[in-house]
Design a protein around this nucleic acid. Structure first.
Length: 876
RNA sequence: GGGUGUUUAGCUCAGUUGGUUUAGAGCGCUACCUUGACAGGGUAGAGGUCAUGGGUUCGAAUCCCUUAACACCCACCA
């Protein structure tokens, strides 16, 4: 088959992906091989591929492809997440654009719209992963809202509830007024914002005196139910037991004392609004204060807002500030930099709000998860620095608010049969709930229609924390073959931003529901930033279109581009030039094969010495590199592994090996050299395949006609054999000599085509790779002796050998002399530093013998070189 | 406010338990090469007081402390 002169990535990618799929190479079923399992971090079902996904999934693909080639039963489970708040927000926005309000729809209607949306856009991202080359077992694709997945979630809820770990509580939660739902603490991001600190005067009841209170939120004074001072604050001693009048209202509220108040902040006097602040709520409980909730669910003021009812909170703040000023209650306003919590999804400012929510107790779940990561090393976090972050969060873990006031998600399986706080039951199905309710209430006449299911759904992460188990149906059927075989999985590759959201919770669920770790290694990638170091985001518009990159450069090139500088845990500064580098690399490999393929084979030729030398060296060098690559893989240093393969192919294989075995132009090659070169090239393709699956598969099939079972993707990863490092060192020396010759030619302007002679002051037996030096140095003959004194030419030195090359033209003696003088100066300086060390008695006494010997050898070599240089200089 | 991490060539980063020719790679840069697989190429070269100041040691980019800058995480200070 004729190989095209240009490598066309686009043309071959879909071809090979289809081929892999048709042959079910990515499909995995339990068998007697050892499993190697990765579950994908499920992207949002309606999401589209961005740079973070590309990085993350390229890594997973590289790891799983190598595992497959190493003979493991490799299983990469794909899927998507329903992402309740994000997806619901998108659906609400879409309906709004059509003039439909969510509040006008029934729950059922809304869910129909949501499913329609999901079916339309869902899975787009999975198709995009295929374009990237991801070798997932697509038959296993899961969605967190699949019926089996949902059932698993509900079973877990019921179990945890029955174990007393899930409870219902009237608590202060983070309320997102835009999405109209609560958020977990992790979903709130604190942003530094410039706000105002309003100093407001509260009139002391039955007195002319005022107390000044500083607040950032004047509108909440409508919900004030006390003013608090520190019991030891002498400024306010006389106010103990008195009351104040809330400005703008006629309410009289007590002055209470509590040590919670910081005397040195603001005025040392605090207004207490138990309905709208976590700490105020605690104070309120302690001092049995009234709770006045002043907000509607959209954060507009409710009937408790009096004349301000109906106003949005920010509008109300402005108007109230104005009114306070008009009525002389506003003493002063300072600008104040403080942190404001906003919703991760909607960016709306979070409102602390009291409401009934479901919580999961975390302490008991956390203990085994702490032990696994920090004590037994059952689970390894890479890079290790995340252990500290993990420890801190886990040791201070708080109960998890798992209810969301949304419709898109798993509805909480709690069924109310009465109005009382405890008049509910929890069960996976309504039928089971009914039975339980009949027993609990003692009313056997209860009917299904008497039950009312909780309106809330569960936090998305309450389904994804089961992911490694539920994708193998291990919740519903803990003994099934799949979960027994594939669980625990090997690696989890994800971003550190979801270490708490997801990773930590999966670890907890793993021990809770299977008594075993969910994975053994967590590879935390960095963020993808642009080359200026800014985080890539839609808002900034600095994120390249992932698919366009693949289109422009090819999937292999983009993968290489991403991997070239992405050490674990380090942010990746992405620049398109990296993809160009990847593309150039693909081109290089392509052309390397074109060169070999173009050689005509002559069966009668014997293989030349230079080819034997070179092939032998490369064989050894390949083994050495392979060992290094394996070592880097074991340490999850994927970019280092790639870089050594990159250099192996580009420099060692193309620039050295191929140049050495290349026959003269138009001449045929011998069979032995050709076959060996092909075999070595095949090994190159094997180790490159996980990184660049498409081009390597393409070339693999060009090399010979192969049956499907001989596809590269299911071939084998080479096994490290022993290698002769002496040979490698010897060749490196030959490379230096060749470099010296090339440098010499350049300095003296001697064309490569012009053959030269070489004199060297050593014996032939000490000289390895002679044939290679002859060929790549363009050397006609080597004389193993010093050059005759009267011969015109120039010299250079490698280690303590002196090389001399005769030239026709007389050399510029001054230049030659200057060069020698400079070399001499350097070598003397070097010798001096070594001798200084050796002269130090304590060094000789304390350093290991090896180190001292080495220093002595350095000194001896330097002395020898100095004498060479001095001798040469004398001839001027 | 607390914590963690980073700081090595123009850029992005290695530097493996302190000693391997007075620091390495890739990219970029410079010079030369219309070489027959590849100009998306070849050959060679320049470029670093290892952030700062101190300390430990025979010996420090590597260990300890100070300072500075940056990044991230956590936290209820109105």
């Amino acid at each position: 088959m004729e190989i095209p002169s240009k490598f066309d990535a686009k043309g071959i990618e879909s071809k090979w992906y289809a081929y892999w799929q048709e042959n079910k190479f990515f499909k995995s079923l339990p068998d007697n091989r050892e499993p190697y399992t990765i579950v994908i971090p499920p992207p949002n079902v309606t999401g589209i591929l961005h740079m973070g996904h590309m990085l993350n999934n390229s890594l997973q693909d590289i790891i799983i492809r190598r595992a497959r080639m190493r003979g493991y039963n490799a299983c990469w489970v794909p899927g998507t997440d329903h992402a309740s708040i994000a997806t619901e927000a998108k659906v609400v926005a879409k309906l709004k654009s059509e003039g439909i309000e969510k509040s006008d729809l029934t729950r059922e209607d809304f869910l129909n719209h949501a499913w329609e949306w999901t079916e339309k856009y869902g899975g787009v991202i999975l198709e995009q992963l295929k374009k990237l080359g991801c070798s997932c077992d697509w038959d296993r694709t899961k969605f967190t809202l699949d019926p089996e997945m949902t059932e698993s979630v509900l079973q877990v809820f019921v179990k945890l509830h029955n174990d007393g770990l899930i409870y219902r509580g009237y608590r202060m939660v983070n309320w997102d007024p835009e999405a109209q739902t609560t958020l977990s603490d992790e979903e709130v991001i604190y942003e530094e914002k410039n706000g105002n600190l309003y100093h407001i005067a509260y009139q002391v009841a039955d007195s002319d005196e005022q107390v000044i209170i500083a607040t950032t939120r004047p509108e909440t004074l409508l919900g004030d139910t006390a003013v608090c001072i520190h019991p030891e604050d002498e400024r306010y001693h006389h106010l103990k037991g008195k009351s104040v009048r809330v400005p703008l209202t006629n309410r009289i509220i007590p002055i209470i004392e509590d040590e919670y108040v910081a005397m040195d902040f603001g005025t040392g006097c605090l207004k207490v609004t138990p309905a709208h602040d976590q700490n105020d709520k605690i104070l309120g409980e302690k001092h049995k204060l009234e709770i006045i909730d002043i907000f509607n669910s959209d954060a507009s003021l409710n009937e408790n807002g009096g004349i301000y009812e109906g106003l949005d909170r920010f509008k109300a703040r402005k108007i109230i500030a104005k009114d306070l000023e008009a009525q002389k209650f506003l003493v002063k306003v300072e600008t104040y930099l403080h942190k404001v919590g906003v919703s991760e999804r909607t960016k709306a400012v979070i409102e602390p709000r009291l409401s009934d929510q479901w919580f999961l107790k975390m302490k008991d779940l956390a203990d085994p998860a702490i032990e696994a990561v920090l004590e037994t090393n059952d689970i390894e976090l890479l890079p290790e620095k995340f252990k500290n972050t993990y420890r801190h969060w886990m040791e201070n873990i708080r109960d998890w608010n798992i209810s969301r006031q949304l419709w898109w998600g798993q509805r909480i399986p709690a069924y109310y049969y009465g109005k009382g706080n405890e008049e509910y039951v929890v069960a996976v199905t309504p039928e089971e709930a009914l039975k339980l309710a009949q027993v609990k209430s003692g009313n056997l006449n209860l009917k299904l229609t008497d039950l009312e299911q909780d309106q809330d759904v569960l936090d998305t992460w309450f389904s994804s924390w089961l992911w490694p188990i539920s994708v193998f149906d291990g919740i519903r059927h803990p003994e099934n073959e799949e979960i027994q075989y594939y669980y625990p999985t090997q690696d989890l590759v994800t971003g550190p931003d979801i270490l708490f959201f997801w990773v930590a919770r999966m670890i907890m669920s793993g021990y809770a529901f299977r008594d075993e770790r969910p994975f053994s290694k967590v590879y935390l990638t960095g963020l993808v930033r642009d080359k200026k170091g800014q985080k890539m985001s839609k808002q900034l518009g600095n994120s390249p279109d992932a698919l366009k990159l693949i289109e422009d450069y090819g999937a292999d090139a983009v993968r290489v581009g991403l991997m070239l500088s992405s050490a674990a845990g380090n942010d990746l500064l992405f620049d398109e030039v990296l993809c160009q580098q990847g593309k150039n690399f693909a081109n290089k490999i392509w052309n390397a094969y074109r060169l070999i393929e173009g050689w005509e084979i002559n069966e009668d030729l014997k293989s030349p010495k230079v080819a034997q030398e070179a092939l032998d060296w490369y064989d050894n060098h390949f083994q050495k590199t392979l060992a290094w690559v394996d070592e880097n893989f074991d340490k999850y240093r994927i970019s280092d592994a790639l870089m050594s393969i990159y250099k192996l192919l580009w420099e060692d294989f193309c620039s050295w090996l191929l140049e050495l075995i290349k026959p003269e132009y138009g001449q045929p090659i011998d069979r032995q050299t050709y076959d060996k070169a092909i075999a070595l090239f095949e090994n190159n393709l094997r180790i490159l395949h996980p990184f660049m699956p498409f081009i390597t598969e393409e070339l693999w099939h060009f090399i010979s006609t192969r049956k499907s079972e001989e596809a590269l993707t299911v071939s084998s990863w080479p096994i490290v054999e022993s290698f002769d490092s002496k040979q490698i060192t010897n060749f490196e020396f030959a490379q230096e000599i060749i470099g010296g010759i090339r440098n010499f030619r350049k300095e003296k302007n001697i064309s490569f085509k012009e053959g030269i002679s070489l004199y060297v002051n050593t014996t032939a037996d000490e000289f390895n790779y002679e044939a290679s030096i002859l060929k790549l140095g363009g050397v006609n003959e080597i004389h193993y002796s010093s050059a005759p004194d009267d011969l015109l030419g120039g010299s250079f030195r490698i280690n303590n050998l002196e090389f001399f090359i005769p030239t026709n033209a007389a050399e510029d003696p001054e230049a030659e002399k200057a060069k020698l003088t400079e070399e001499l100066r350097y070598t003397r300086g070097f010798l001096a530093s070594v001798e200084k060390k050796l002269a130090n008695e304590r060094f000789v006494a304390n350093a290991p013998a090896q180190v001292i010997d080495l220093e002595r050898k350095k000194a001896a070599d330097a002395i020898e070189k100095i004498s060479l240089l001095e001798k040469s200089l004398k001839s001027f």
